[in-house]
Design a protein around this nucleic acid. Structure first.
Lengths: 138, 138
DNA sequence: CTATAATTGAGATATAATCTCATTATGGGC
DNA sequence: GCCCATAATGAGATTATATCTCAATTATAG
């Protein structure tokens, strides 16, 4: 998630302590690939800070979600995963093999504006997911 | 999910048996509101067919997903929920209180066409979710 | 350096999802 | 209408995921 640089400073600015446990989690998010779930973050995090506990991973991710730095997302298994909350996130998922392809071009932003006004929402980001069969599966 | 009429016939056509357990699940999907999770389907289903087991609810939903009649989706808790797979599904979610608002107008369809060609996917449906704060929470 | 309030880890607990296997029952063939 | 093969089921065990509790620790302001 190279987009996620600076989480550390943002945590500090929001008035949260920079503990080694949090720094390990943040370091993992900043260096590893996208779509990590709690278990993966825990495993990677323990390489940096062996005492890291599962509860702290859950709590830190809750915090990052609340601060709108990260957003949750589910793919083809029942574990919550995370991506950068910046802007939007767009992918195709194959419902057979679970392969996912990310893409950039998206037409949702003007819509966000319109919906924000219509429903009084303050909109931070969006997720656009297309489901279908990948080239191998059909 | 009034859009989901005819699940029964579609199951039959696809070569699956119309057992009372399946009929109960399908009946629940066709009459109750959207976004039901496995537990809710189980509870409602047992009102129609008391023997209904949890495993059968999971298996039936797997089947309906595989047949592209229904699509999974997660809101603000860690349980899988289901909506009709027809076309697309669009909503706003409040990340604080979890309130969701559905809307219809969507700009994703032309994009689907384009992506299908570019990545060789056969696209069936999509999910567009905006995250933010609802009018009460900001 | 100290005080204090936030944060943590470990394990217990709760919830969700999956698996197993003996039993049952649907639907095609006759 | 009846049989049979095979799909489907239920109950409960198991596994995976998420949440909670509380005593102990530690980051930071002053």
């Amino acid at each position: 998630m190279t987009i996620m640089v600076g989480l550390e400073q943002k945590l500090k600015i929001a008035g949260h302590k920079l503990t080694p446990a949090r720094l390990a989690v943040v370091e993992v998010l900043e260096t590893q690939h996208d779509h990590l779930n709690h278990n993966q973050i825990l495993d990677e995090g323990r390489k940096l800070y062996p005492k890291l506990s599962r509860a702290t991973v859950y709590r830190t991710m809750d915090l990052l979600v609340e601060l709108q730095l990260v957003r949750p997302l589910y793919l083809n298994d029942p574990t919550q995963r995370f991506v950068s909350a910046a802007g939007g996130h767009h992918h195709l998922v194959c419902c057979k093999c679970g392969e996912t392809v990310e893409f950039e071009h998206c037409t949702a932003d003007p819509l966000a504006q319109e919906l924000a006004e219509k429903y009084g929402f303050q909109i931070f980001n969006h997720l656009l997911e297309f489901q279908g069969l990948c080239i191998k599966c059909h």
